[in-house]
């Protein structure tokens, strides 16, 4: 067992070191002899055993003695650990490829491929005190009236519901990817603004009125808001400038914003969003699958197309 273990470990080390490459060759010779039903007479195992025991001897004679007497057993233990760690590594890589996180969909534990956890970060929504941590499992569209949100291409079979915030970094990271996905696929797209930053609260009403005035221009306006420097989004004059440039009638919009009907509609939108149990932005529902945080494009694409994305 030791020779096999040594072959794997030394082959990896051998990529970087000529000394280990030579040892890997010796380990291969030993393994090859064993699989061809010949005894391993190269003395490789004994050599490595002596080297390892010698290294440990000065630090702990007890451990050195234990290793010397139970070398095969220790080899087995390390082999099992190696197989287990390989399994977890492969599983982590697989999860990362599929979900952008080594730990699974929307899981935030440490991931070597995404050490800073960027793919799972969200802008937290201030909610009422709760003993339990918000969970992705609670996210749902059941009972949520989606008809009150801006929608594009409503008849398409595939559906994306994007809950985001104009002024939030992670939403702004995910939005262009979702736009790319929409551009490349026949998709029904619903956008729900859930402002996490106070200074952009007014954009919910602004967006409602813009959509009400001109549904086609709304999507240009939406794109323009996400393309803008987020420092400017709290400035109504700046937003007016964007809307005006797109062709909106600002007087109509201002009147709409001030109306009681708009306030009630926006309040209703918030209530509907709350029913999803959203706890951070961006939260994206793609054909019912929830993706929290800005995922890599491949993750969104696979969620939309399944294995067809190959």
């Amino acid at each position: 067992m030791f020779c096999l273990l040594a072959l794997i470990v030394l082959s990896i080390l051998g990529i970087f070191s000529a000394t280990h490459r030579q040892l890997a060759k010796e380990a291969f010779d030993c393994v090859f002899r064993r699989i061809t039903f010949r005894p391993c007479t190269t003395g490789f195992k004994e050599k490595m055993k002596a080297k390892l025991t010698g290294k440990i001897l000065n630090r702990s004679p007890f451990v050195a003695r234990f290793l010397n007497r139970h070398f095969e057993l220790v080899s087995w233990v390390f082999f099992i650990l190696m197989v287990a760690s390989t399994f977890w590594t492969v599983k982590g890589a697989y999860n990362f490829y599929l979900y952008g996180s080594c730990n699974g969909l929307n899981e935030t534990g440490f991931c070597a491929f995404d050490p800073s956890g960027e793919n799972n970060k969200v802008s937290q929504i201030a909610t009422s005190c709760s003993l339990e941590k918000p969970s992705e499992k609670d996210l749902t569209l059941n009972g949520v009236d989606l008809s009150i949100f801006p929608i594009r291409n409503p008849d398409a079979k595939d559906k994306i519901i994007f809950i985001g915030c104009y002024g939030c970094d992670y939403t702004r990271k995910a939005y262009p990817l979702i736009q790319k996905l929409i551009a490349n696929n026949e998709v029904s797209f619903i956008f729900a603004h859930f402002p996490v930053k106070d200074e952009t609260n007014f954009l919910s009403e602004y967006g409602y009125c813009a959509y009400k005035q001109d549904q086609e221009r709304f999507w240009q306006f939406n794109d323009a808001l996400f393309a803008s420097d987020k420092q400017n989004l709290g400035n109504k004059n700046y937003v007016d400038g964007l809307a005006s440039k797109i062709g909106y009638n600002l007087t109509t919009i201002d009147r709409c914003i001030d109306s009681q009907e708009t306030k009630e509609a926006v309040e209703r939108q918030f209530q509907e969003i709350s029913k999803t149990h959203v706890y951070g932005t961006p939260t994206v529902f793609i054909n019912g699958k929830v993706l929290v945080g800005p995922k890599p494009y491949r993750v969104y694409e696979r969620a939309l197309k399944g294995w067809r994305f190959w």
Binding site: E46, A50, L57
Partner: peptide
């Protein structure tokens, strides 16, 4: 005891 083992351990340890 294998003589090579003794020699290698003397080398590695000291």
């Amino acid at each position: 005891v294998d003589s090579h083992q003794v020699a290698l351990m003397l080398d590695e340890s000291a």
